[in-house]
Design a protein around this nucleic acid. Sequence first.
DNA 1: ATGTCC
Length: 376
Amino acid sequence: MKLKKIDATGKPYRIFAEHLESQAIDQFVGAMQLDSVLKGALMPDAHSGYTLPIGAVVAVQGMVYPSFVGYDIGCGMCAMKTTFRPADIRTHAPAIFKRIYEQLPVGFAHRKTPSEWGDFKRLDHTPHLKKLMVNGGLKQLGTLGSGNHFVEVGEDESGAVWIVIHSGSRNIGHSVATHYLKAASPDGRPREGFFGLLTDSAAGEDYIRDMAYCLAFALENRRQIMHVVADAIASQVEGKLIVSSLINRTHNHAEKTGGLWIHRKGATHAEDGMPGVIPGNMRDGSFIVRGKGNPESLSSSSHGAGRVMGRKEAKRKIDLASFAADMRVRGITAKVDRHTLDEAPGAYKDIHEVMAMQADLVDVLHHIRPIINIKG
DNA sequence: ATGTCC
């Protein structure tokens, strides 16, 4: 495969998506025209976002762009295998479902007391972020959030039960993103546009430090959710986590490789041999994958199926009764009502088609089919 | 995405 070229820039890029909105193309081409951006790729689930499309990967020299990482810094996936038995989970699904909601704060909810996190003082971070952590950050550790964040308890093709988590850095990441979007903005207000920070400037160095902290915070958040969910299941049926099987992948980050800052915004890191987790939707579940380190995707893959309609449009167009029937016939215990209609499978691209479009980016190891789904 | 505006 040869890299396509943008005429205006002559820079190498490759688009793995079909049917892109014109706004997403404009955003991507605009970014590719920046002097600091040397290479890029759009994943199969790409759609327009804040300044840069979700599903974009760009390699940047000498700059970091807060808007190329996005608001939920460190948002990503965790998956862990367990010794629970699928039949037990199905039999006790209503009780497990109820128990998880009792134990896990979802939506805007947070914990009444700060969670334990041994690393939170040790990791390097700025005074600004320290203030955020003291002012409630630790109460958000082990909380799910809302939107497309979820917990899935499912079964793979071999009969193994997995717990899959999609969550991020909660308000910490959002506040850090806002802070540095302001620092990069010409008028001190967060606004859309290609405003970056020099990596050797004070603000750029601070963003890199705080971003790394948010990645650690988001991982710890997912790890704690994993244990809350496992404990909730273990209160009803026999079994436990297989802790050594943990896979953690963030899909909103920037990392320095070969002297360039690779920004992934809604794109999963997929180096050769690297394990990953790609969620599909509430009905079709998630995929455990192994990266292929494809240079054309800047060693990345999609972070999910990608939306085909906005949340408001989905709530207007998708029929609740058929969504509910779709879930019921597969025996999936989930919150299915007008509040989760925007997360219905029909709001997303067909995940099987998306996986086929990235066959050169990742190999599929396991397909996890949902038994229980938890949403904010 | 975000205890949904410090």
